[in-house]
Design a protein around this nucleic acid. Sequence first.
DNA 1: GGTCTTTCTTAACTTAAGTGAACGTTTGGC
DNA 2: GCCAAACGTTCACTTAAGTTAAGAAAGACC
Lengths: 192, 192
Amino acid sequence: MQNILFDFISKYITLTEDEKNALLSLDLFHSVKKGTTLLAEGQKSQKSYFVLKGCIRVYYIIDGEEKTTAFYTELDALTPHCVLNKTPSEYFIACVEDSILLISNSDMEEEINSKFPKFEIMCRRLSEELLAKQQIDFDEFKTSSPEQRYLNMLEKRPDLIQRVPQHQLASYLGIKPQSLSRLRARILAKKN
Amino acid sequence: MQNILFDFISKYITLTEDEKNALLSLDLFHSVKKGTTLLAEGQKSQKSYFVLKGCIRVYYIIDGEEKTTAFYTELDALTPHCVLNKTPSEYFIACVEDSILLISNSDMEEEINSKFPKFEIMCRRLSEELLAKQQIDFDEFKTSSPEQRYLNMLEKRPDLIQRVPQHQLASYLGIKPQSLSRLRARILAKKN
DNA sequence: GGTCTTTCTTAACTTAAGTGAACGTTTGGC
DNA sequence: GCCAAACGTTCACTTAAGTTAAGAAAGACC
């Protein structure tokens, strides 16, 4: 599990043994059971998440309805909005599957960053990369129809369709569960 | 114009006079005429943009049609995807209005960042903030209808509706120009 | 100032998503 | 293994967006 982390980090910076040990001494690794709520609407939190194994999701409750807007799976990192602007959270974060997560809090990060300026560099590169990636995702979303989005997901994140309930996928695609059902039937009919 | 820049930076880090002068010596300020293409599809580029005054937009050409996905106005920063992953650009960037931009290239940034580690910190904070902000925007987009998105924009970026052509706004809202026209008529009818 | 082009609106028609409800299936808890 | 709840699919109906086309309005260029 630790190697997964270090392999990931090595894409951005090179760590010495000392630095690796400093990281490991922080007790970041956590097992979380499916269904666990990691963050609730209205809560304040300082915690950031990194998925080593499993899947977590972000969802809102709007007019009593759950709207899932994001899934984070292996090697995805998530710093909730509320951590950065220190306001109560507007959304929930929950575990979709039994997962192994790295959970850090901002104090920790400040400390590590000031001790090892290298981490600062990694964080910049990582968030720049994520920002750019998300921009592309957002662009694709804006420029395509629900059906295209679904087909696109089939190509790019086929695992999600297996591991996540349909009604959560639906709001992720910006539509209602019934529409996703119909859309899937439509695609099947076209194939034949 | 320079004060606008320094005021912006001061939200993230505190600069010494030396550092300010180092920045100014880089010749970052540029006037760009309306309609100018800053980046074209297929091009490779190292340039990042920061809008001091005016407006620039990102658009794709898909099946011969322009699809505008983002607008950047005063104090918005944009590092194109192609700069980060060193691939040819998938989109265009053009000037919507006569604008004053800061244009930097990645070499410059590397140099400044290594000379003044403070900048590294600013960049991290800035991109983390932008990432979080964009996540919220994306979430809002996914969880609302075109009509809600338009009303939302009326509240949060009313300036855009004035300064940007409707057909560009339409794709920004994820719909066709005709639908935007109709939707506006519908909203007007409801008011009375 | 007049012309050409781009942009915006309107309309009729098509297609797909939203809504409300019913029903069969799966899942989880006891 | 049984029951209740959650989930997925289907259907009929409503609403809104996509499409195609036409014409009015606004801007750009000479």
